[in-house]
C-alpha cells in the first residue's frame, strides 16, 4: 500500500526521494540499464530509438495497458492472446471486401465484443475471485483462438497481398506526426486516456477499491459488475489496438500470433509494480514495467545473449520481482 498512498510530486525531500527509490526498485533498474546500454551503444539514447522501441513492443505495451486495470481490480484476463489472433485475422481478411478503415473499425469492435463477452460470463456467474476469472478467460482464449483458426482455416493472411489501399497500416508502421511516429502517438493517446480514467474518474477509483476488498467495496456501494464490464472491455479493446499495430509491423496475420502476449502482458504489469492481488497499481507503472523488459531485451541483444537464455532471464525477472515484493510486504506487516 505504501507506494500507492504516498502523495507523489508535492515536495520531494531527499529522504522521501530515497524512500521512493527503495519502494520502487524498478526505476533504479531502469536507470542502471539505460546507463549500461548507452555506454555500450551510444545510439541508444536517441528519439529514433525510442520510436523503434514503441514500434517493436507496441502490441506488448497495448496489451499490458489493458491488462493493468484487470489486475488492479483483482482479476486476470488470459484471453488476450486469443483476442489478438482473432482481431488480426478478421482485420486483414476484411481489407479487400470493405476497405481498410471499416476493417480496422470491425477489428476494434471484435476486440471490444470479446472483452464484453468475457465480462458478461464473469458477471453472470457471480465470479469474484481471481482464480474463477482466470479459468473462465482461459477457456474463452481457447474459443477465440479456435474461431480465428476456423475463420482462416489455419492459413496465414498476408497484408501485402491485399489489392486494396493499405495506407493506414503503412502510416502506422512508418508514418510520422511531427517528430514522433504514428504508433507512438497512438500509444501516448491511449496512455493519457487510461491515466485520466484511473486518476480522475469514479470508475478508476472503483477499480482500485474493487481490487482492494471486494466485499467491502460491495457494501460501500461500488458498482462491481459495471467495473468488471469496464475492465474487460478496455482489455479487449486495447488488445485489438495492439493487434492492429502488430499486423502493420509484421504485415501478416497468423491465427496463432497472439499466444505469447498473454504471459508477456502479465509480466509487464507485475514487473511495473501493480500488485497481483489487486488494489494497488497504475498504468504508468505498467509503462515502466514494459520499458524495463524492452531495455533488458535490447541490452541482452547487444551483449549477444541467445534468445533462449533471454527467455529464461524473463522468467527469473518475474520470480525476482514478485519475491522481492513479498519480502517487503512481510517486513512491513511484521
Amino acid at each position: 500500500m505504501s507506494a500507492a498512498t504516498q502523495p507523489v510530486g508535492r515536495r520531494v525531500s531527499p529522504r522521501a526521494a530515497g524512500d521512493f527509490l527503495k519502494n520502487n526498485p524498478i526505476y533504479v533498474a531502469i536507470a542502471l540499464l539505460v546507463i549500461v546500454t548507452s555506454v555500450v551503444e551510444p545510439k541508444f539514447l536517441t528519439l529514433n530509438n525510442f520510436d523503434n522501441i514503441v514500434r517493436q513492443f507496441g502490441v506488448l505495451i497495448f496489451a499490458a495497458l489493458g491488462m493493468t486495470f484487470v489486475i488492479m481490480a483483482g482479476f486476470l484476463d488470459l484471453s488476450i492472446g486469443g483476442i489478438i489472433s482473432l482481431v488480426a485475422v478478421v482485420t486483414v481478411t476484411l481489407i479487400d471486401p470493405i476497405g481498410q478503415g471499416p476493417a480496422i473499425l470491425v477489428g476494434l469492435a471484435v476486440g471490444l465484443a470479446c472483452g464484453l463477452l468475457n465480462s458478461i460470463l464473469i458477471v453472470a456467474s457471480g465470479a469474484l475471485t481471481q482464480a474463477e476469472s482466470l479459468f473462465i478467460t482461459f477457456g474463452m482464449s481457447l474459443v477465440y483462438g479456435a474461431v480465428a483458426l476456423m475463420y482462416v482455416q489455419g492459413v496465414t493472411q498476408f497484408l501485402t497481398y491485399s489489392e486494396s489501399d493499405i495506407s493506414i497500416f503503412e502510416a502506422l508502421n512508418s508514418g510520422q506526426i511531427g517528430f514522433l511516429s504514428v504508433a507512438t502517438v497512438v500509444f501516448l493517446v491511449c496512455l493519457a486516456i487510461l491515466a485520466v480514467i484511473e486518476k480522475r474518474t469514479y470508475m478508476g477509483r472503483s477499480v482500485v477499491l474493487t481490487g482492494g476488498n471486494k466485499v467491502a467495496a460491495r457494501l460501500a456501494g461500488i458498482p462491481i459488475s459495471r467495473t468488471i464490464v469496464m475492465i474487460y472491455a478496455i482489455s479487449g479493446l486495447l488488445s485489438a489496438i495492439g493487434a492492429i499495430v502488430l499486423i502493420s509491423r509484421v504485415t501478416l496475420a497468423d491465427p496463432t500470433m497472439g499466444t505469447p502476449y498473454m504471459t508477456q502482458a502479465i509480466l509487464a504489469v507485475v514487473v511495473g509494480g501493480t500488485a497481483l492481488i489487486g488494489g494497488r497499481g497504475s498504468v504508468l507503472w505498467t509503462v515502466a514495467g514494459a520499458f524495463l523488459l524492452i531495455l533488458l531485451n535490447n541490452c541482452l541483444n547487444l551483449l549477444g545473449v541467445s534468445s533462449y537464455v533471454q527467455f529464461m532471464i524473463w522468467g527469473v525477472v518475474l520470480i525476482a520481482v514478485i519475491w522481492l515484493d513479498a519480502v517487503k510486504e512481510t517486513r512491513v506487516s511484521g
Binding site: 527467455f311 524473463w314 527469473v316 520470480i319 512481510t330
Partner: peptide
C-alpha cells in the same frame, strides 16, 4: 516460506525451465 504469489512464481519457473530446455 517467503509468501510470494505462487501463480506468478511458478509461471516464471515454467518460463525459466522452458528456456533452459530450449538452450
Amino acid at each position: 516460506y517467503q509468501r510470494a504469489e505462487p501463480f506468478i512464481i511458478t509461471l516464471g519457473m515454467g518460463i525459466v525451465l522452458t528456456g533452459a530446455a530450449q538452450q
